[in-house]
Structure formats: C-alpha cells, structure tokens
C-alpha cells in the first residue's frame, strides 16, 4: 500500500509541471498587465514611466523563457513568487485564504453527505415511490439551479425574512456565518450524491449475489449493511472525491456572493488585476488539492473493496 501511495504521489509531479507550464503560457499571452489594470478604472492617466518601473521591479522586462525558468526553479523550492499587488509572498497570501475555502468546502460536503446520501439510499430502497420521485425531482432541481441565484434566495429567506443568520461575511469565523454559504455550495453536490447513491444502490440490488442472499433468508438490514452499502460505496466515494475537488473551484461564486475570504475571491481579484504570481499560485494549489483528493479516493478504493488491486 505504501508503494502504491508513493507511486501515486510521484505521478502527480508531471501533472503539476504540465499545469504550471499551461498557466504560465496562458498568462504570458493574454493581453493586459498589472500596469494596465492599475488604470482600468479610469481614475488616472496611463503612466509610461510607471509601467517601465513596474516591469523592471517585477522582472517582466526579461524574456519569457528566462521568466519561466525562474518560475520553475522557484517552484522546485516551494517558492510561488511575490504578489505584484501586495508585494507579499504568494504562499503567505494563499496561506491566509486556503483555510476559509477548505472550511467552506468541508462544510458543504458535510451538507451534501448528511442529506444526499440518506435520500439517495431511501429512494433506491423504494424505487417508484413518492419519496423516490420527490428526491429525484429535488436532485434535478438542485443540479440545475445556479448557485448565485440560490445564494440570493437563501439570503432573503434566512437573513432578511427570518432573521436567523447573517447574510454575508466571515464574522469571527464561527458557524453562524458558515451556514448559508455552505448550504448554497452544498446543494449541487448533495443532488448529485443523491442521484449517484440511488443509482449505485439500485445497481447492487439487482445483482445475483443479492438475490442469492435474499433467497437464503438474509434480513434486509443485514443485506443492506453488509452487501449493498459496501458495494455501492465505491461509486459513491468516487463521486464524493470528484465533487470535493470541483467544489474548491466552484466556491469562487459563493465566496464572492457571501464576501467569504477564501482562495476563490483572491483568485478573481488577481485575474482582474493581472497579479500573475497569485493567479498561478492559487490555480496550482487548487490543482494540487484536486490531485491529493483523487489519490486519497484511490487509496480508499483498496480499503473498501479488496478485489481492487493496486499491484
């Protein structure tokens, strides 16, 4: 198992290098710069002297291949560079923002698991029933509703109408401020999880070994506990892993709407202001999170289903 984990971790290296290269190339060719972003709001005239000084200070006057070489070299030393805007190390900026994003994604995932999993399970147990129909209509709706609109509805209902929760902000980092953004972010994965769970459970339920177990008189409780759940979990965990990774990226919209101080809102501002080191660093961190989660999911496969061989 240890060899397998090590191999998976090593496989991440070329992916990270490829992603770094791609990000670097994209932001080397797209028009706009930190200097042009400074006058984009029309509050000051273009200043060629400032542009020259900025390019010199941030090394943007050097050839692209030299900059890329430096970027990779620094990356190898876990140095993501310095922000053009704040002049702070990018790792420091990301460090300030990664925890709120993780917290939001974890909370949203908890919402998804706590509601989506049992709903999908019960719907599969009674296919064609009212509960099944309601669950599936809800799941389709949950997948279709834009997060932005859902977030606004949640704000109007829980903050403005009922007055139960604050409508925005991080507060002191407590639970009250987390509830609405987590609900908003969690609805999509919850719906997908409900559908996936239902499908996975139905598939397992229709297999021969389940029919055999039933015919041998095994109780429904034991059947579900020992056979259905364990077999369905492979698909469910795959969905969960992929969803968690995607959620880190989807959090951008929710973070902006709820003024949540995560990596997504940092990324949006940095793209607009062409703070390239921060953009590169943030995307890289998000990609890393995705890769790590995938690796964890792969490891979990082996734990759940010993038939899966990693040799």
């Amino acid at each position: 198992m240890l060899r397998f984990i090590l191999r998976r971790l090593l496989q991440m290296v070329p992916t990270v290098i490829a992603v770094s290269l791609l990000i670097f190339i994209i932001f080397s060719v797209v028009p706009g710069s930190i200097a042009s972003s400074m006058i984009a709001d029309g509050r000051g005239a273009n200043d060629p002297e400032l542009i020259e000084r900025l390019n010199r200070e941030f090394g943007l006057d050097r050839p692209v291949h030299v900059r890329f070489g430096d970027y990779i070299w620094n990356l190898a030393q876990f140095d993501l560079g310095t922000s053009f805007r704040t002049r702070q190390p990018v790792t420091e900026l990301i460090g300030e923002r990664i925890w709120p994003t993780l917290k939001l994604a974890i909370a949203a995932m908890c919402v998804a698991i706590a509601i989506g999993l049992p709903l999908g399970f019960f719907a599969a147990m009674r296919p064609g029933s009212l509960l099944d129909s309601i669950t599936m209509v809800g799941a389709v709706s949950g997948l279709s509703v834009p997060q932005f609109w859902l977030g606004l509805l949640a704000m109007y209902l829980f903050a403005l109408t009922l007055g139960w929760l604050p409508s925005f902000g991080y507060g002191e980092g407590g639970l009250r401020n987390l509830v609405l953004p987590a609900l908003t972010l969690g609805v999509g994965p919850m719906a997908l999880l409900a559908r996936t769970t239902r499908a996975a459970v139905l598939e397992v339920m229709s297999t021969d070994f389940i029919r055999t177990a039933r015919s041998k008189g095994m109780s429904s409780f034991r059947l579900v506990k020992w056979h259905v759940t364990r077999n369905a979990l492979v698909l469910i965990i795959t969905t969960l892993g992929l969803q968690f990774g995607s959620m880190m990226g989807q959090a951008v919209v929710v973070e902006k709407l709820f003024s949540w101080p995560g990596l997504g809102s940092l990324l949006i501002d940095s793209v607009g202001l062409r703070d390239i080191p921060v953009v590169q660093g943030s995307i890289l961190v998000l990609v890393l999170c995705f890769l790590v989660i995938n690796t964890v999911v792969d490891v979990l496969y082996a734990v759940i289903d010993p038939r899966i061989s990693h040799g």
Binding site: A159, L160, S167, F168, K256, L257, F258, S259
Partner: peptide
C-alpha cells in the same frame, strides 16, 4: 470596513441592517 463586491448581496445586507 466590510469587503462586499456583490451589489445584490449588499442590497440584502443593507435591508437587513447589517
């Protein structure tokens, strides 16, 4: 000084007296 880039969210927060 609250950072609130979204106009709709500001509207809700203002009406909610936050």
């Amino acid at each position: 000084i609250m950072i609130m880039g979204d106009a709709s969210a500001r509207d809700v927060a203002f009406r909610n007296k936050e």
